[in-house]
Each structure stands twice: as structure tokens, then as C-alpha cells.
Computed example of a mutant assay.
Amino acid sequence: MCTVSYLPGQNGFILTSSRDEKLTRPVAKLSEPILIHGQEVTFPSDPQGNGTWIASSNARTVCLLNGAFTAHTPAPPYRHSRGLVVLNAFDYFTVQSFIANYDFGGLEPFTLLLVEKETLVVLRWNGRQLFVVEKDPAVPHIWSSATLYEPEMIVKREKWFSEWLDSLKEISLDGIREFHKRAGEDDPENAIRMRRGDVFATVSLTSVIRSGTQMEMIYEDLIHSETIHKTLSRHYVSN
């Protein structure tokens, strides 16, 4: 359950994910890169589902939000955790091949963002049908998890994002991370950095930054005030 923003930049982009999760869920840790089909893939590892909500190589970035278009009633058992889909996406040579050939059956609804070679694809699985939309990678975007936020609140959060963009002199990493920490703070249950009692909260903030031939991931544990930076191997950069 997340909020994700995408900002285009000179020769790249910044993708930032606020992870909203139960406070009782085990703490995720940023992994050492693992090799998947010849790509070094870096991600925060979720010890409960053995997957992740965001992962990147230097050629592809994949990010997950729980739910498709609207909140759903969970109906387990599911084939496996949605967090494994993020890593499975790196098994395919192209995003198009992943979409055409991956078996989405038996999985809980989710939204998947895939960024590769100046392409931004939004994939939504509602438990029965797959919906695929290609977005303009030259335009900023924001998404909110349908499982935590009602449609009217999603629209309100999009307005916060639009107002923040209008106030900018220039786009920056520090600026978007500050937006994810401060926007909507007068409404803590629905703020970008949210908290709902002792049950749900925004537990981490992860950014993937691409600039030219360099890709970096920044993972910040908001509960334990720990930040880790990793520069992804240039060997796998796709120019």
C-alpha cells in the first residue's frame, strides 16, 4: 500500500515510493544486488512475503501498489505474494514480453509501474482482467493505493501534487522527498506520510534516480531513521 510519484528529469527520472504498511509487519532492509537474467537488481527486501514493492536495475524500474482501481475484499489463498511479481518482471527481456507472457492468475489485485527506455507503463490487475496503459514519461504523475484511499481522497492527493508542482522553481530530489514527507500533514490519516493510530503508517521512503548513465536508489526507514544510498552497477545501463 503506497503512494508513488514520478518526475521526469534531464536524461532520466525520479521515482519515489512511500510505503504505507501495518506497523506490526517485519522491517524491510535494502538488499545487496541480486543477479536476475544478467541484470543486477537492487530492492528493499520484505521478510514477510520474500518479495518487494520497488526494485531497479540500470535498465528497468518496477514499482508495486496494492489494489487496482478500487478497494477489494481479499479472498485468499493466493498463488503467491504480489511482491514477487516485481522481481519476476526482471525475468523477461522486455516489458512487453512480461505483459504478454506472465501468468497473473490467482494473484491479489495490484497496480504495477514499469519504467524502461523512456517508456512508462501502468499495469493494473483486478483479479480477473489485466489493464495496460502507457503514460507520457515527459509528464509528472502520482498514484495512490486503492486499498487505503477512497477515490475522492486520491483526487485530493493528486491536487496536492499539482499544487506542489506549480510552486516549484525547479524539480529536485530533496524537493520530492520533502513533498512525500509533508504534503497533507494537516490530515494525518490521509497525508502522503500517513498515520492511522497504532495500526498503519508510512514506514519507508524509497527513491530511484536516473541521470544519464547513472542509476541510484535511496532507501529511508522512517521508523528507525536510517537512510541507505546505493549506486546501481553502470555495467547494466541501457542507453
Rank of each mutant, 00 (worst) to 15 (best):
T3A: 01
V4N: 02
Q10F: 05
G12T: 11
L15T: 04
T16E: 04
S18P: 06
S18I: 05
R19H: 07
V27W: 07
A28R: 02
S31Q: 10
E32A: 14
L35E: 15
T42G: 02
T42A: 06
F43K: 01
P47D: 07
Q48A: 13
I54R: 00
I54T: 00
V62F: 13
C63R: 07
L64S: 08
L65A: 09
N66D: 11
G67N: 10
G67K: 05
F69A: 14
P74N: 13
P74L: 12
A75N: 14
P77L: 03
Y78H: 13
R82I: 06
R82G: 05
G83C: 08
L84W: 04
V85Q: 07
N88T: 08
A89W: 00
Y92I: 04
Y92P: 05
Y92E: 01
Y92R: 08
T94W: 02
V95G: 03
V95N: 01
S97D: 14
I99Y: 04
Y102T: 02
F110Q: 06
L112K: 05
L113V: 11
L114I: 14
L114N: 03
E116M: 04
E118D: 14
V122G: 10
L123Y: 03
L123I: 14
L123M: 13
W125N: 01
W125S: 01
W125A: 02
W125M: 01
G127N: 12
Q129F: 12
L130A: 10
V133N: 15
E134Y: 12
D136W: 11
P137A: 07
I142Q: 01
I142W: 03
S144C: 15
S145F: 05
S145E: 03
T147V: 13
L148A: 03
L148N: 04
Y149R: 01
V155H: 04
K156R: 15
W160C: 09
W160R: 10
L165F: 10
L165Y: 09
K169R: 12
K169Q: 14
E170V: 08
S172R: 09
S172Y: 11
L173S: 06
F179S: 00
P188T: 07
I192A: 04
M194E: 07
M194D: 10
R196D: 13
T202K: 01
S204E: 00
S204Q: 02
L205Y: 05
T206A: 04
R210T: 03
G212Y: 01
G212A: 03
T213E: 09
M215K: 08
D221W: 05
H224L: 10
H224K: 15
S225M: 12
S225G: 09
H229S: 09
H229D: 05
T231R: 04
T231C: 05
L232V: 03
R234E: 14
V237P: 01
